[in-house]
Simulated scan of single mutants.
Amino acid sequence: MWFEILPSFGLIVVFMAVPHASAYVINKAVVGNMYRRSLLTREERMQYLRDRRLTDNPYKVKGLEAIPDA
């Protein structure tokens, strides 16, 4: 019957979801943030470098108080 594929389908879905779920846990442990920044475009890389220069940690967002007065 058609319902005999449900256990196999469930296993495939779980095995496909494990890498995505573990990425959040690993990023939280290593980086301190649940989400990894994408550095695919030049604009995103420049924002990453700007945040690292201003706050010494590009993953912890700070407000205007982090920008020094010129």
Score class of each variant (00 low, 15 high):
residue 1 M to G: 15
residue 2 W to Q: 04
residue 2 W to S: 11
residue 2 W to H: 13
residue 3 F to R: 07
residue 3 F to Q: 02
residue 4 E to I: 05
residue 4 E to P: 01
residue 5 I to Q: 07
residue 5 I to A: 13
residue 6 L to G: 01
residue 7 P to M: 02
residue 8 S to N: 04
residue 8 S to K: 07
residue 10 G to K: 04
residue 12 I to G: 03
residue 13 V to C: 13
residue 14 V to D: 00
residue 16 M to G: 03
residue 16 M to Y: 09
residue 19 P to Q: 09
residue 20 H to Y: 08
residue 22 S to E: 01
residue 23 A to V: 04
residue 23 A to E: 11
residue 24 Y to A: 06
residue 24 Y to H: 13
residue 24 Y to F: 15
residue 24 Y to I: 13
residue 26 I to N: 01
residue 28 K to F: 08
residue 30 V to P: 00
residue 30 V to M: 11
residue 32 G to F: 00
residue 33 N to D: 13
residue 33 N to S: 14
residue 34 M to Q: 03
residue 34 M to H: 05
residue 34 M to D: 10
residue 35 Y to L: 14
residue 36 R to F: 03
residue 37 R to G: 00
residue 39 L to Y: 12
residue 39 L to N: 11
residue 39 L to H: 10
residue 39 L to E: 11
residue 40 L to Y: 01
residue 42 R to H: 03
residue 42 R to L: 06
residue 42 R to Y: 03
residue 43 E to H: 12
residue 44 E to Y: 05
residue 46 M to T: 11
residue 46 M to H: 06
residue 46 M to V: 13
residue 47 Q to F: 06
residue 48 Y to C: 00
residue 49 L to G: 02
residue 49 L to C: 06
residue 50 R to A: 02
residue 54 L to W: 07
residue 55 T to A: 15
residue 55 T to C: 10
residue 56 D to M: 06
residue 56 D to S: 15
residue 57 N to H: 14
residue 58 P to C: 02
residue 58 P to K: 04
residue 59 Y to K: 03
residue 59 Y to A: 01
residue 60 K to H: 14
residue 60 K to N: 06
residue 61 V to S: 08
residue 62 K to S: 05
residue 62 K to N: 02
residue 63 G to R: 12
residue 66 A to Y: 12
residue 69 D to E: 12
residue 69 D to H: 05
residue 70 A to E: 09
